[in-house]
Nucleic acid binder design. Structure first.
Lengths: 310, 310
DNA sequence: CACTCTTGTTTAGTATTGCTGATCGATCAG
DNA sequence: CTGATCGATCAGCAATACTAAACAAGAGTG
């Protein structure tokens, strides 16, 4: 009669519950789980049948958690964290020799990817995969081993370690240093297009052209004109193509500066900003030897860059 | 593309995995989950597809865990413990005012049940349910709020609190104290049937008739003859029916001794044994106010009994 | 106040998943 | 070798989960 298994809640319904409770929205939960809202609604109802009590207060507009849901949610969350981690561990043998790092597209393309060949040469048998994604989605469940994030280094539930500081400086194609409108001093910028990087928008310490010019007392240059890009790499590529002068992130521009594709027209142009690059991974995660090796290598590369650059 | 949800293992397959890993047998796992072995086999295979690596080493005869399974199993277990507990908490509002205690059939019938009326009278609005089951099944998942167990009080993963000591003493129907074969001293037992309780078999400190007689230097009585019962209550009822003299557990016999249905023929007959009755519940479990009240009441009843009895 | 937008619910139909029951192959004990 | 036991496999069936579409109920807007 009292079969112990009957006492376990329906597991798939718990997934819907967790997502809905986290978002406080069935629609968003449905979106997250790639199902229709109706499916979520049904799963929740099934769980409520099991519980014998409502889990959400439906207030027309949105939904609220009942006490029962409130009380059980932390345990459900912990359970899923463990399941997620268990899943990773199960997969570990199959992933052996592969390290997956998630990072922002620009950083991946301009900083990480060019150095990867070197890693592969020195670490035989370990291949690195880069997953370039934008959002800093809660990745306790993502399939990356760790991530490189651009920000202040404080992330809820995640451990982080500083990788690299970031500085911002004007860069342009070497072609712009010649000819009648050659850039010699900041005032010369009036003859050129200003390229705006809006990828670091939420960092108040990151200067835009307007504040950069103001800080240097440059007159007669409108710091607001010019095209805007939402990714650092786009600014860099535009600048390299000779379209204008970019206020660029040093880490992203470094390889092009080193190759001569870009030049820094002003000696004192660079500004250290608050945001930086961080190695980030979920708190309880087991890091395999391969992953550790890769992280260590990345950090070494970063210190190298600091010696050479800026 | 890399949908975070795809990274979670199939949840129902995990249940099969946990059971199979615990039992190291697909057949037994199937039995536990009330499905066929084929179903388990398929679920495990599905999980192995997910993991990309085998989880069991099939050695024809039985199965062994691979490293991947070994490593992930603890997390899976913890996850299910939390899910189980979350399930209970969800159901708490619906269970309000109900306390479910699991205990051995004899103790339930002869000790607990008779006192329940009193509890109900003093604790209005709380009803107590008794689930009398024999096995001390791992009940992290059972639906009882707590259990009363007979034993030494050490249970893996469970918390316990001493409820009652147990003593063993000869009892019989008052009818046997009269007539030509009236029982006055231990030697008189030769004229009567000895009733054997084998329910405490695994307690070496618990005397049987043979050791009881030997300890008192009684000669001429064969301590091995007579019917044997595997439950304490059966011995008691046989004795009460006048069939013979039982070496009975005090706690089980107490109510019949009090009512005069049974009597203790010898003044010095009782022996304190190692085993006793314990309140037992899973370590991380949240005990509701109702449950606490019931536990407290049970303990009070137990101390009352100690004052009156023995 | 009507209109519309958003959000959750419901229902019937469909797709997916999970299970059975029978059969097979392997292993081990006698 | 033979019988017994255990796991794997497969086709068919049952249960579960999902979709699509219509519906209902606030909340914001003009």
């Amino acid at each position: 009669m009292s079969d112990p298994n009957d006492r376990l809640p329906p597991l798939n319904a718990l997934r819907a519950f967790e997502a809905a409770a986290r978002r406080l929205s069935f629609t968003q939960a449905a979106d997250e789980l790639n199902v229709t809202p109706g499916a979520i609604s049904q799963q929740i109802r099934q769980l409520e049948d099991y519980a014998g009590t409502p889990l959400f207060k439906r207030t027309g507009r949105s939904v609220l958690l009942t006490d029962a849901a409130q009380a059980s949610l932390p345990l459900v969350r912990e359970a899923f964290e463990r399941i997620s981690e268990a899943g990773r561990i199960m997969q570990a043998p199959a992933r052996k020799g592969r390290v997956m790092v998630s990072c922002a597209p620009s950083f991946a393309a301009k900083w990480l990817a060019p150095k990867l060949g070197e890693f592969h040469r020195t670490h035989d048998g370990v291949e690195a995969w880069i997953s370039a994604d934008m959002g800093l989605t809660d990745f306790t469940m993502a399939d990356a081993d760790f991530a490189i994030r651009y920000g202040r280094g404080v992330y809820e539930g995640l451990k982080s370690e500083k990788l690299l500081d970031e500085t911002v400086l004007p860069v342009c194609s070497p072609a712009l240093l010649e000819g009648p409108d050659a850039i010699k001093k900041p005032e010369d910028l009036r003859h050129h297009t200003l390229l705006h990087d809006e990828s670091g928008e939420n960092d108040p310490s990151c200067p835009d052209w307007a504040s950069w010019l103001r800080a240097r007392g440059v007159e007669g240059v409108d710091g607001n004109r010019g095209p805007r890009f939402n990714q650092a790499i786009l600014v860099i590529e535009s600048a390299a193509a000779g379209r204008g002068v970019a206020l660029a992130k040093q880490a992203i521009a470094a390889s092009d500066l080193a190759s001569g594709r870009l030049v820094a027209p002003f000696a004192d142009g660079s500004t250290l900003i608050d945001f930086g690059y961080w190695l980030v991974w979920p708190k309880g995660r087991h890091l395999s030897p391969d992953v550790r090796a890769f992280m260590k290598w990345v950090k070494t590369e970063a210190t190298k860059g600091e010696i050479v650059g800026v």
